[in-house]
């Protein structure tokens, strides 16, 4: 009987840890999303639109989940350093230059990236700041 009680307490403890871990990630995600939205409004929305719809052939939409997924490790570089190459989004070619945003700190880049990849119909989940920092060091 005693063993049974100790075991169940132990299991409850483990479950408690897992649940609280998940909660921490959910909290982080919400935190990134709300800060990311503010940064998006200030830096990205002019060209990419309130709902990530883009602007004609001048600025690509941010709704191509496949593009976002295949270029996952380059997104942070695009956000911080801009883009000066032609990109295929939703099967269309976009050749305009995207400006750099050197004023964004790594954490800002991470937050706005998480916001974009989890808005406008995208759902790619949370990416911690540390991973984004790594991506930024490997920018070409």
């Amino acid at each position: 009987m005693r063993k049974y009680i100790i075991n169940s307490i132990f299991f409850l403890f483990i479950i408690g840890i897992i649940v609280s871990c998940q909660n921490q990630e959910t909290i982080d995600l919400q935190n990134y999303m709300s800060n990311g939205k503010d940064i998006y409004k200030a830096k990205c929305q002019n060209c990419h639109g309130e709902n990530g719809e883009g602007l004609g052939e001048l600025a690509p939409p941010l709704t191509d989940s496949v593009f976002l997924k295949t270029n996952k490790n380059r997104l942070a570089c695009f956000i911080k350093n801009g883009a000066n190459e032609s990109l295929i989004v939703h099967g269309k070619e976009y050749k305009e230059k995207m400006p750099a945003f050197p004023e964004l700190a790594d954490i800002d880049v991470a937050q706005v990236m998480v916001y974009i990849t989890n808005s406008f119909g995208n759902k790619q989940g949370f990416v911690p700041y540390s991973e984004v920092s790594k991506d930024l060091q490997n920018c070409k």
Binding site: Q45, N46, C47, G49, L55, G56, L58, A59, P99
Partner: peptide, 13 residues
């Protein structure tokens, strides 16, 4: 222009 013009022309469109 990367600041107000895209928004202006998006709305003007």
């Amino acid at each position: 222009c990367t600041t107000i013009c895209p928004t202006m022309h998006r709305n003007l469109m």
